[in-house]
Design a protein around this nucleic acid. Sequence first.
DNA 1: AAGAGCACTTAACCTAGATTAAGAAATTAT
DNA 2: ATAATTTCTTAATCTAGGTTAAGTGCTCTT
Lengths: 191, 191
Amino acid sequence: MELIIQNIEKIVSLSEQEKELILSKIEIRKYKAKTVLLNDGEVSKYSYFVNSGILRSFNINDNIAEHVLHFACEGWWIGDMYSLLSQKPGNLFIEVNEEAEVVLLSKENQEELYLRIPKLERFFRILTENSLVAHQERLMDNLSLSAEERFEKFCSKYPTLIQRVPQKQIASYIGVTPEFFSKMKAKMLKK
Amino acid sequence: MELIIQNIEKIVSLSEQEKELILSKIEIRKYKAKTVLLNDGEVSKYSYFVNSGILRSFNINDNIAEHVLHFACEGWWIGDMYSLLSQKPGNLFIEVNEEAEVVLLSKENQEELYLRIPKLERFFRILTENSLVAHQERLMDNLSLSAEERFEKFCSKYPTLIQRVPQKQIASYIGVTPEFFSKMKAKMLKK
DNA sequence: AAGAGCACTTAACCTAGATTAAGAAATTAT
DNA sequence: ATAATTTCTTAATCTAGGTTAAGTGCTCTT
């Protein structure tokens, strides 16, 4: 059974026809690692749902530093919300971190689904609410915790990611340089 | 005409009956400056919409540092999303910054309204989406901009707030100490 | 109007984390 | 396999922003 249907049914229940309608409105694609799904400066057309593998979203500051906004592995949604909603060029990249199977839901299809299956409004409202809560927490953590504490939180929240993504991307996610991260990790191991 | 109805009608249109139903489900209260609407450790019952005045949400770290999550003035929503959604004790305070008239919408009434006026699902979905985009941008700004740049962005985004809230709260919002903020401001004025 | 608290400033000193640079280890491509 | 590229580590040095502390002005009280 499609993972995306299970994901939706965690929040709203669906009839067989509704499931089929949803499945008819999505595309499933496979990508190799390092494939770029969305470039900085492009207008985003899709929401992405990860069936397998890992994607990440990030921006690049002054052509120098990369800042990871989000990782998404199996069962997670990812996208450039700003660009998708405003239909203006965004400043996020979305890239395949690890060979992935991805469900693509276009903005038009998403809106058509809202009209034909109104309870999907509820599903995406709740999904967005949960994401907002997570972002608020991360924001407050960045204001009030040390790098070490942020890393510990990251580890307990995303234990599976630690082994699967390059350490410099974790450094970027928690907001430190790879060099400092390496030093910090060595220091933490001594304890 | 009630500001909250105008606010909703910016996104979805309402019949007269729907407007009346909404108005029957809200409470309007006036508060003096420094009134605490929600305490750290409490379970949040309400979403708040500001008719006039200013509210702010913040947490307190180790009984020492206050970190401002959000300001809300006329026409803005504010709340402790985490606590409201999970119905668990939150870690935010919500306090009146400046004498305010506030619309209170209880969680139960909000859910009843979702059932009786399904397009409110759409309204709150879009409201939450916009809030998420703003939080993502602020998060990325905190990772990639200097304190000075964050302050400039704050000024251009919330020009009216600058005169109306204590400077130490702006310092907290952008993520620096009041002492550093003061020094930085003096330096910026020299230019 | 006198005092008590806050909010702001200034300045000296301190530190978490950044930067630069160079080498070691691990991946990836050929 | 070997070369090329990328990731990770270590270490020296630097800096944005924190801390502490003292002083100045507010704005509430009463």
